[in-house]
């Protein structure tokens, strides 16, 4: 959490957010599928100021061998931020503790929907690179990776999306940017399987009441319709 002493006012007098968005408004989102040549599937997302690239390889041989599962495929997931992705610091390359945690929860999201039992003894690799970051990169990463998986033809039960909700004072907000992420009263990234409405990722920090949690999830499920539509269009545009 950033320095709370210099906490800026996050809502304008007219009730809108600093970038002019309504409380439940997404940042501009565009997705393009099939952007890399070598990968079996790939996608590139611009979500507000976030720029995210995801690629999928496999099913392929499992290395190292002790990860092998004779009954199903294993998903290997890498989430990493480029050293030049943030405005303030030059990050150190390679995964840090935060990136390793995000890689793990991302893998667990896709464990639910990818039909792993079709490919015993193989690995499916998902690689997510954050090229430019402005808050909500794990959600952008999951949304992008879902498109890359579908583009790769990996059989899945659903096309998942992810977005975060949060809280400023007593108001629930959707899709937090970096500033809101740092200074809001709560931040909750969620990934959803739109077909069933099941929640596949849920993380939260800050303070939320039970009612606010429900309101947050409702806001996310409502916004998810828009995200799903953009994901679908990205996949269909490949065949234009």
């Amino acid at each position: 959490m950033a320095n709370m002493l210099n906490k800026p006012e996050l809502l304008r007098d007219d009730g809108k957010r600093l970038d002019g968005r309504d409380l439940d408004e997404l940042r501009p989102l565009s997705i393009k599928a099939n952007v890399l040549k070598n990968a079996a599937g790939s996608a590139y997302t611009e979500w507000g100021n976030n720029k995210v690239l995801a690629a999928v390889y496999g099913p392929k041989e499992v290395v190292p061998r002790h990860f092998l599962d004779p009954e199903r495929a294993v998903i290997k997931c890498r989430y990493a931020m480029a050293p030049f992705s943030s405005l303030s610091d030059h990050g150190r390359s390679g995964p840090n503790r935060r990136a390793i945690e995000i890689s793990k929860v991302t893998k667990e999201v896709f464990d639910n929907v990818v039909m792993l039992e079709e490919f015993p003894e193989t690995a499916i690799e998902i690689s997510i690179e954050i090229l430019q970051s402005d808050g909500g990169t794990r959600a952008a990463g999951i949304t992008t990776a879902a498109v890359a998986l579908a583009n790769a033809g990996i059989p899945m039960k659903d096309l998942v999306y992810s977005v975060s909700a949060g809280k400023i004072k007593d108001k629930i907000i959707l899709d937090l940017d970096m500033l809101e992420d740092n200074y809001s009263d709560a931040d909750m990234p969620v990934a959803v399987s739109p077909r069933t409405g099941n929640i596949l990722l849920l993380q939260m920090d800050g303070e939320l009441t039970r009612q606010e949690l429900n309101l947050g999830l409702d806001t996310i499920l409502e916004a998810g319709k828009q995200i799903s539509k953009i994901q679908r269009q990205a996949l269909i545009d490949v065949y234009e």
Binding site: P155, M156, K157
Partner: peptide, 29 residues
């Protein structure tokens, strides 16, 4: 796209759908 409902009278290749309850859904593009 993956997760889309397939109408009942569509002839299908066994590898590109799954069933959940009474309905079938697509698993690939």
């Amino acid at each position: 796209i993956p997760g889309d409902l397939i109408e009942t009278d569509v002839a299908r290749n066994r590898n590109y759908y799954f069933t959940d309850g009474n309905n079938s859904y697509c698993t690939s593009m």
